[in-house]
Design a protein around this nucleic acid. Structure first.
Lengths: 213, 213
DNA sequence: AAAGTAAAAGAACGACCGGTCGGTCATATA
DNA sequence: TATATGACCGACCGGTCGTTCTTTTACTTT
């Protein structure tokens, strides 16, 4: 009992910090990291604007931490689950489908944090841009290594260009975000899924590894 | 002589209007249509901030006109040139390569106006969002009809899903923008071109229609 | 030549931006 | 128990935003 009263200032601070960060990632997935304003963020997170500065020196520091937080979310929701299944071609498809599910479930109200962030910062040099580029490079690198693994396992055609295939899987998944929101959600998910499934099936040495549709 | 003096108020206004619009599309390709500020826009276009309001009621009207201006630019640079060549599979590849050239030449400093605009407005209902959605739909519709034409000409496999292929060509081209700016330009253009070329070649009834690489 | 009109500039507005400051209060530390 | 610390607040700063109003200027129309 009296559980809610035991409120240790430090633990409470940590909870505030995470609430703000989580809210920041959500809001940034809609408005972007620049469109995010400290006033609205603080209000949405239930703290005062000045309370915010107990946790971050300035807006840029928050942006950097938000990128790290979003990376963790991506690993938790997309990468880690796929590591529970078999490697190779099936893992590639699992990654892609986890991504589509991530979008479809509306985990982030704007669809994809990094999609917005990379468009926003690809022309604005600085630490934030560098952090986004690193996250993007990490993700594409992981995809590429997963392709290489599939080739090494003999599941995909030996002539497969891993970097090329990683680029395509990423591009075909990314476009689902705006296509589903601007035009039609059902066809966006269908096109996004079918594109990668057929691309992978064409490279498969054992056609039973992935479903026909 | 006295050419610069003959300045007809009306003609001068039209020139101002177009200078502002052109500048707005360039700046919006970097900062987005919301990130665009009237002060910097006016300065870059060589007029005063208030002079802007002689041409547009408010910022939203400018955004709508900028979308129309960017659409015309896209038609002039991508669609119209491709109509000069043969229809069918070669036209699809020509469209894709014109797009990549558009990016590589730096026609717009931010790479692609609509790429930025669609990410920015896919979650913000209103007239601007609707205009961006229409432009996006027009482009994808044109791609789809070009695919259908290629199928009707017997150049592409009869079982080709036109909407699906249009989605893929667009997605694979779009991703070049941020990939080239955030990571590596050379590989981005190579991946973007190779992806569509191979995708089309796999559907070709006459393999000599498109180059091997 | 007079009257009318369109293109601009200049100054100023209220709202909101990121950020600072002084202060309060519960808690961790000694 | 004394003290330092971290979380947090309300008030406020200079600056920029989109927008409005007034005025000047130069062309167009009558």
């Amino acid at each position: 009992m009296a559980e809610t009263k035991a409120d240790g200032r430090r633990a409470r601070g940590e909870r505030s910090r995470e609430a703000i960060l989580s809210q920041a990632v959500s809001m940034a997935s809609v408005e972007g990291l620049s469109g995010l304003t400290l006033g609205r963020l603080a209000e949405a997170a239930g703290v005062s604007k000045s309370g915010f500065f107990a946790h971050w020196r300035d807006k840029e520091q928050l942006q950097l931490d938000a990128i790290a937080w979003a990376s963790r979310l991506w690993v938790d929701r997309i990468i880690r689950p796929s590591l529970a299944g078999p490697p190779g071609a099936r893992r590639l498809m699992a990654l892609h489908e986890a991504r589509l599910r991530f979008y479809a479930e509306g985990v982030l109200p704007g669809g994809c944090f990094f999609y917005v962030a990379q468009v926003e910062f690809d022309d604005k040099p600085g630490p934030v841009r560098d952090a986004v580029a690193t996250a993007m490079s990490d993700w594409l690198g992981f995809l590429r290594r997963t392709v290489e693994e599939a080739v090494a396992l003999g599941e995909l055609d030996a002539g497969t260009d891993a970097g090329q295939l990683a680029y395509e899987i990423n591009a075909l998944g990314e476009a689902v975000v705006s296509h589903s929101r601007m035009l039609d959600a059902e066809s966006a998910y269908r096109f996004g899924r079918t594109a990668v499934l057929h691309r992978l099936r064409a490279l498969l040495t054992d056609p039973t590894l992935l479903p026909e549709a």
